[in-house]
């Protein structure tokens, strides 16, 4: 069985006096509340920013304070997403919440064929400041129609920035960046991240696009992971450390734009790469990062790259079957161990 969200991850110490320990959901809502307060043009369309779990009540305060700027639309994803796109074209800063990531398929034409293309087709004369927010991935019982991780498909769509925070501090610093970036941005959350606790600065700073974060420094193996798989990887790193394997964990945080340099520098240092991601194996986030590493830095690799991903099958319902596909800390740790023990590439 997969460990539950609260078991996963490594609690880091506060960096500075005044850092506050918050859940991911609290940090997300704090960012939304701040944007609502600071920016009278900030509009939210969608009802389930925090999903359907118990954390959802945190969002109610924002909803009650700003009833005119938190709109609960009908079940009409292409319609209300298009409303968001049009409102953004007319000067509002919009967050369209699609709730479960799988529902973005109902809105795909507006996301990938309108918002993503609009600036380009206009010849740079039009900005579309909109954020598409959803909760992706294996959530426990979501099964085939409620467990998608569409970020790889969206990465295959030029014109969308893609942000994937993995900690309370990151989501607190990244959501304002997404809203203020002035461009269509896919903001990828995960329901299993919502209860994760972590320290958030007393005065949160915006985290820029395209800046990766080294979540753990190490010298033996580089693990690149995104979203909730960062938390799973942190858990794996802890186990591996007790075995004497020193893992470096790189979290790109945004894949569009992608901080290639931080990833490649880490791989140059360790010579071993494991890419972990919850998108499906073929043409997934991990595939692209592996391709970049093999194009740019093959000489530095001591062993071939390994991907730890969700296999190419629909997500099943039964917990045993869902767990079989998950990028669990155990699977990640096993991949790292294999990288340490397998035969090195012969370069003679």
């Amino acid at each position: 069985m997969a460990k539950s969200a609260t078991d996963v991850g490594v609690q880091q110490s506060p960096h500075q006096r005044g850092d506050r320990e918050l859940t991911y959901a609290e940090a997300l809502v704090e960012a939304i509340a701040e944007l609502m307060k600071e920016d009278p043009d900030f509009l939210i369309i969608g009802s389930y920013v925090l999903g359907l779990g118990p954390m959802r009540a945190l969002f109610d305060e924002v909803r009650h304070e700003y009833p005119k700027r938190v709109l609960d639309p009908p079940t009409a994803e292409i319609g209300f997403t298009g409303f968001g796109v049009g409102a953004a074209m007319n000067g509002l800063h919009v967050l369209v919440d699609l709730s479960t990531a799988s529902f973005i398929f109902e809105a795909f034409p507006q996301v990938v064929n309108e918002a993503a293309n609009a600036s380009y087709m206009s010849g740079g004369r039009l900005a579309v400041p909109i954020v598409f927010h959803f909760l992706h991935g294996l959530r426990g019982g979501g099964a085939a129609q409620h467990s998608h991780s569409p970020q790889a498909m969206l990465w295959n769509t030029p014109g969308l920035q893609i942000m994937m925070p993995s900690s309370p501090a990151d989501v607190r610093g990244m959501l304002p960046t997404a809203i203020k970036s002035g461009n269509p941005t896919v903001f990828v959350d995960h329901s299993k991240l919502m209860p994760v606790r972590g320290y958030v600065p007393a005065l949160p700073k915006e985290i820029p696009l395209g800046v990766a974060d080294i979540k753990r420094s190490g010298r033996d193996v580089t693990v690149v992971a995104t979203s909730y798989s960062v938390q799973q990887s942190l858990s794996a790193c802890k186990t591996l450390a007790s075995e004497g394997i020193d893992t470096e964990l790189v979290d790109p945080r945004t894949v569009v734009p992608l901080d290639r340099q931080t990833i490649l520098e880490s791989v140059a240092k360790t010579g071993r790469l494991v890419v972990v991601d919850e998108t499906h194996r073929s043409c997934g986030i991990a595939s692209e990062i592996a391709a970049i590493a093999s194009e740019e830095i093959l000489d530095a690799l001591k062993v071939p790259i390994i991907r730890v991903t969700v296999p190419d099958v629909p997500v099943p319902f039964s917990p045993v079957l869902e767990s079989e596909l998950d990028t669990t800390p155990e699977r990640i740790a096993a991949a790292v161990r294999y990288q340490m023990t397998r035969k090195q590439i012969n370069r003679l």
Binding site: G82, G86, A88, N90, Q110, N113, M121, S122
Partner: peptide, 19 residues
């Protein structure tokens, strides 16, 4: 913005009105 996708412009125009 012009959308050459049939029906694509309709929610966008209405969203601009919302703004």
């Amino acid at each position: 913005h012009t959308s050459a996708i049939v029906g694509g412009i309709v929610p966008i125009a209405a969203g601009a009105a919302l703004a």
